[in-house]
Design a binder for these strands. Structure first.
Length: 795
DNA sequence: ATAATAACGAGA
DNA sequence: CTCGTTATTATC
C-alpha cells in the first residue's frame, strides 16, 4: 500500500494537484503542489479531501485544481485521496478565497467553516461512492429535473442511482449569469481538466459586469460591499482601481426591481408578466416592486433587493415564493436565517410551496452525521434549495440563482470563528461572484442594507404608505408617566397607564398580549421603590446598579458604592430593580390581570407560537412567539435599557427588536395596538411610530458617515498582548489615510487597537494585515494577535 | 515537526 | 579551504 515515492507513477494527464493544506498559519495561505499518483487519477478531482505530507507531518487538505505542471522543482506525491466525494464546490472555493481576502484570513480557516466534517458512514450509505459523469456540474441541472429528488431524510435514505440522471438538457451557462456555468467550457470529459478554480479570467469576460471579479485583483473581489462604488453624494469611486467603476454590476446587471414593472429590456410585456408573477406569489403584490422582483427571479436574472417587510408579514411564505420562482428558472437558492426558530418556520413554508424533497434545512442542532447527510444532499445537487443558519452561507447548490438573508441585523449572523465573516457579507459576495440575485430582508433595516441601496447595488422593496397604514397596528409612545403611581392596577405591574389600558382592552376582546422586556442582566439598574425615580450616583449622576441580589448599589460610571442612598425626589431609602427579568415581570403582570393566563418565552424556554386567546405573553427580544391571528396589543417595556447601551449599534438594535415585536400585532383596523414606553421624540421611537425603518436606517448611516463608523468606513480590530499588537501594526503597510485608534484595554491583560480606512481602501487594509500576520507567523515567536475586520463589537 | 540550507568556526 | 556543527527558514 504505502509504496515509496519512487515506485509511484504520476498520472498521465494533469499530474499536478494544487492543494490547500489545513494549517492555520497566514504565511502558508497559498496552494501547494503535489503529484497525483496514477492510481488516484480518477478520484483526485477538484474539491476532494486529500491527505498530504506537509513539513514532515500528515495534514488534511482540499484539492483545488489539477494542472499540467508546477513551478516547484521537487514535488511529493499526494499521500491519499480521503474520499472521491467532491465536497468543495468550485464556486465555494472561489467564494471562500474572496471571503478570506475580505476578512484578512486564511483560506483554510474559511474552508473549515464551509465544509462540514466528513462522516464516512453517511457518505457510503447515501450514494455510490465513485463520481459518475452525471456529477459534472455542467450537466447537473437539478432544479427542473423531474423524477425523484431524494431527500436524504432522517431515515436511512438509500438513493437509487437513477435519481442522479439528468433528464433535461443542459441549460446553465445560457443567459447573463454564466459565472458558474463557465465550468462547462472545461467540462469533465477529460478527467481532471476542471480548472474551475483558476478559471476566473475566462469567466469574467462573458459576464456583464463581472469584469470586476478578476481573480488576483483583491480590490475587485471585495466589491459586494461596494468598496469601489461611490456612495451617493459621498466618497468617490475606488481610488486607483481601473476597471472597477464602469464595469460594476450596478451599471451592467439588470436589477429588475423598478417599481411596478420589470426593468429589463428583454422583458416584453412587462406589465403582463408582472401580473403573472403576482399571481403565482400574490403576497409580493403588496409591494410595488415585488412582482417585478419575482419575475426577474423566475427569468433567472440577477435582481438584488433590500426588502422591508410589512408588519404582520408572513415572511417565510414570501421567501419560499422567491425560492420557488428561482427554482422555476432552473436555479438554486441559499437562504440564511438567524436561529432555529426562524428556520423551522421557513422550513415549513418551503415544504408548503415546493413540496417535499426540494429543499434541505440545516442548522447546528442536528448532529454531525445528520449535518453531513444534508450537506451531501446539497453538494450532490439532490435539492435546489438550501436553508439554514449561518453555516449554510457556504452551502453548495447547483447554479445558484438567489441568495437570501432574513433579519440581517441579528448578531447571530456574525460567525464567531476566524476570520469572523458575517453571513450578509458572505452572501453578497457570493451573489457578486456568481452573478446571481440577492434578497436582504427584515422588518428592520441595517446601516449595511441602507448602504446597498444608496450605492445602487440593490433596489428597495417596500410597501406604499397606504398599504402600510392598512397593515400597521396603532402605535403610541408613553413616557415614564407620573400618573403611574396613582393607577392602582398599573402600579403593581410597573406599567404606565396607557400600556395597561391597551393590554386590558385586548384581553377583554379575547386577544393575546405580548410584553417585550429586555433580557435579565442586561443592564440591571435600580430606581426608588416608592416613586420610581431612577437612582443616580450622588457623585457623578451616573446610573446605579445592583450586581447581586443583596449587594450595595454601585455606580455604573464611576464605580463608587452608594450604601446610604436616599431618593432625592421623595427621600425613600428602598431601591428596586428597574429592569426586571421576564419571569418577574410575568408574576407582576399576573397579579395585575387576575384570571388571565401568563406565559413566558425567553432564554430557557422559547415558545414558537401561542393560540389566539386572551393571554399575557412575556418574552425577551428574539423569543417572541407568533400569535395565531396576531396580538391584540404589544407592549415594549424598559426600553431605556436598550437605548442607553454604549454600543454603536444600540439604537439600530433597539429599532430592530421593536419592529420585530410590533410586527406580530394585528393591524390597527383589527384592533391591534403597540405601546412603547419611551419618549416619543427619540428617533427610534419616531421611526417605530411611522413604521419607517428606511428613514431610520438612512439617518443612522448618515450619522455613521459623519463619525467615520462602519459601514461607512471599514474598521479592523487587533487584539492581543500590547507588544504583539504593536509588532503587528509595525509590520503592516497601512494604506494611505489609515487611522489608528486606541489602545483600549481588553480582557486577560490584553489590549485592542482599531484601524480605520475608507471603504475604497478596505481591500488594501485586509491584504496589508494578512501580510503582516504572515510575516509574524513566519518567524514563529509570535504571540497571537486576533485580527478582526468588521468586528461585531465596536467600542 | 523536519528537512533543506545558510552560517559559522575550528583545524588542516 | 574543508568539514562538521549549529542556526534559520521554508514547508510542495
Amino acid at each position: 500500500m504505502t509504496a515509496k515515492s519512487k515506485d509511484r507513477e504520476p498520472a498521465p494527464a494533469l499530474p499536478v494537484a494544487r492543494v490547500c493544506v489545513d494549517v492555520p498559519l497566514p504565511h502558508l495561505d497559498r496552494p501547494f503542489d503535489y503529484l497525483v499518483p496514477a492510481a488516484d487519477d480518477a478520484a483526485a478531482q477538484p474539491g476532494v479531501r486529500v491527505k498530504v505530507r506537509f513539513a514532515g507531518q500528515m495534514v488534511n487538505g482540499f484539492l483545488l485544481e489539477r494542472v499540467e505542471s508546477s513551478a516547484h522543482a521537487r514535488l511529493a506525491f499526494l499521500d491519499k485521496v480521503v474520499s472521491p466525494e467532491r465536497v468543495l464546490d468550485p464556486e465555494i472555493a472561489r467564494l471562500a478565497r474572496a471571503v478570506a481576502d475580505r476578512y484578512a484570513g486564511n483560506l483554510s480557516d474559511v474552508l473549515r467553516l464551509a465544509v462540514p466534517p466528513r462522516h464516512a458512514r453517511v457518505e457510503a450509505q447515501a450514494m455510490p461512492a465513485v463520481p459518475t459523469p452525471e456529477d459534472d456540474p455542467g450537466s447537473a441541472v437539478p432544479a427542473m429535473v423531474s423524477g425523484p429528488v431524494m431527500p436524504d431524510g432522517p431515515g436511512e435514505a438509500v438513493d437509487s442511482a437513477a435519481a442522479d440522471e439528468p433528464v433535461s438538457t443542459a441549460v446553465p451557462g445560457a443567459g447573463a449569469v454564466a459565472a458558474v456555468g463557465a465550468d462547462d467550457a472545461v467540462s469533465v470529459d477529460v478527467p481532471g481538466a476542471v480548472a474551475a478554480v483558476g478559471a476566473d479570467d475566462a469567466v469574467s469576460v462573458d459576464v456583464p459586469g463581472a469584469g470586476v471579479v478578476g481573480a488576483d485583483d483583491q480590490v475587485s473581489v471585495d466589491v459586494p460591499d461596494m468598496d469601489a462604488v461611490p456612495a451617493v453624494g459621498a466618497e468617490q469611486a475606488g481610488d486607483g482601481q481601473p476597471g472597477s467603476g464602469g464595469a460594476h454590476p450596478v451599471d451592467a446587471a439588470p436589477v429588475a426591481v423598478e417599481p411596478g414593472r420589470a426593468a429589463h429590456s428583454a422583458d416584453a410585456g412587462a406589465a403582463v408578466s408582472s401580473d403573472a408573477s403576482g399571481s403565482f406569489a400574490p403576497g409580493w403584490a403588496d409591494y410595488p416592486a415585488g412582482p417585478a422582483f419575482l419575475h426577474a427571479l423566475a427569468d433567472g436574472r440577477p435582481a438584488r433587493a433590500v426588502w422591508s417587510a410589512l408588519p404582520g408579514e408572513d415572511w417565510p411564505a414570501r421567501i419560499a415564493e422567491a425560492a420557488a420562482a428561482t427554482v422555476r428558472a432552473g436555479k438554486g437558492v441559499v437562504a440564511v436565517v438567524a436561529d432555529a426558530r426562524d428556520l423551522e418556520r421557513l422550513d415549513r413554508a418551503l415544504t408548503k410551496v415546493l413540496g417535499d424533497g426540494r429543499h434541505v434545512a440545516l442548522n447546528a442542532a442536528a448532529g454531525p452525521s445528520e449535518r453531513y447527510r444534508r450537506f451531501l444532499a446539497a453538494s450532490r445537487h439532490r435539492v435546489p434549495v438550501v436553508v439554514g443558519t449561518r453555516a449554510v452561507m457556504f452551502a453548495p447548490v447547483a447554479d445558484v440563482g438567489l441568495v437570501v438573508i432574513w433579519d440581517d441585523g441579528d448578531d447571530l449572523h456574525a460567525e464567531p470563528r476566524a476570520p469572523y465573516p458575517h453571513a450578509r457579507e458572505v452572501l453578497l459576495t457570493r451573489a457578486q461572484l456568481a452573478g446571481c440575485a440577492a434578497l436582504v430582508g427584515g422588518f428592520a433595516r441595517t446601516g449595511e442594507g441602507q448602504l446597498l441601496l444608496e450605492t445602487g447595488w440593490a433596489k428597495e422593496i417596500v410597501a406604499t404608505r397606504g398599504t402600510l397604514r392598512a397593515r400597521s397596528p396603532a402605535i403610541a409612545p408613553t413616557g415614564d408617566d407620573p400618573q403611574l403611581a396613582r393607577d392602582p392596577g398599573a402600579a403593581t405591574a410597573r406599567l404606565p397607564s396607557l400600556a395597561w389600558q391597551a393590554a386590558r382592552q385586548a384581553l377583554q376582546g379575547g386577544a393575546p398580549v405580548l410584553v417585550q422586556v429586555p433580557r435579565r442582566g442586561y443592564l440591571p439598574s435600580v430606581a426608588c421603590a416608592e416613586c420610581r425615580t431612577p437612582a443616580r450616583c450622588p457623585h457623578c449622576s451616573g446610573p446605579l446598579g445592583l450586581a447581586g441580589a443583596r449587594s450595595v448599589p454601585t455606580c455604573h460610571w464611576c464605580g463608587r458604592a452608594a450604601a446610604a442612598y436616599a431618593c432625592p425626589a421623595c427621600g425613600g431609602r428602598r431601591l428596586r430593580a428597574s429592569v426586571t427579568g421576564a419571569r418577574r415581570t410575568a408574576e407582576e403582570l399576573g397579579r395585575a390581570f387576575p384570571g388571565v393566563p401568563v406565559r413566558t418565552s425567553g432564554r430557557d424556554e422559547i415558545l414558537d407560537t401561542v393560540p389566539g386567546d386572551a393571554a399575557l405573553v412575556v418574552a425577551t427580544p428574539g423569543a417572541e412567539p407568533v400569535a395565531e391571528g396576531g396580538y391584540g396589543a404589544v407592549l415594549l417595556l424598559d426600553t431605556w435599557a436598550l437605548l442607553t447601551r454604549a454600543d454603536l449599534r444600540a439604537a439600530e438594535e433597539t429599532m430592530r427588536r421593536w419592529l420585530s415585536a410590533a410586527a406580530l400585532a394585528r393591524p390597527a383596523p383589527a384592533g391591534g395596538r403597540v405601546v412603547v414606553v419611551a419618549d416619543g421624540s427619540l428617533a427610534p421611537v419616531q421611526a417605530l411610530l411611522r413604521w419607517d425603518p428606511g428613514w431610520f436606517a438612512a439617518r443612522e448611516l448618515a450619522e455613521r458617515r459623519e463619525l467615520g463608523f462602519p459601514p461607512a468606513a471599514r474598521m479592523a480590530s487587533l487584539t492581543g498582548k500590547a507588544e504583539a499588537v504593536a509588532e503587528l501594526l509595525d509590520a503592516t503597510h497601512l494604506p494611505p489615510g489609515a487611522e489608528v485608534l486606541g489602545p483600549v484595554p481588553a480582557p486577560d491583560d490584553q489590549e485592542r487597537m482599531l484601524v480605520r480606512v475608507s471603504r475604497g481602501r478596505a481591500a488594501e487594509l485586509a491584504r496589508a494585515l494578512h501580510e503582516a500576520a504572515a510575516v509574524r507567523s513566519a518567524k514563529k515567536a509570535a504571540l497571537p494577535v486576533r485580527v478582526q475586520v468588521d468586528p461585531a463589537e465596536l467600542l
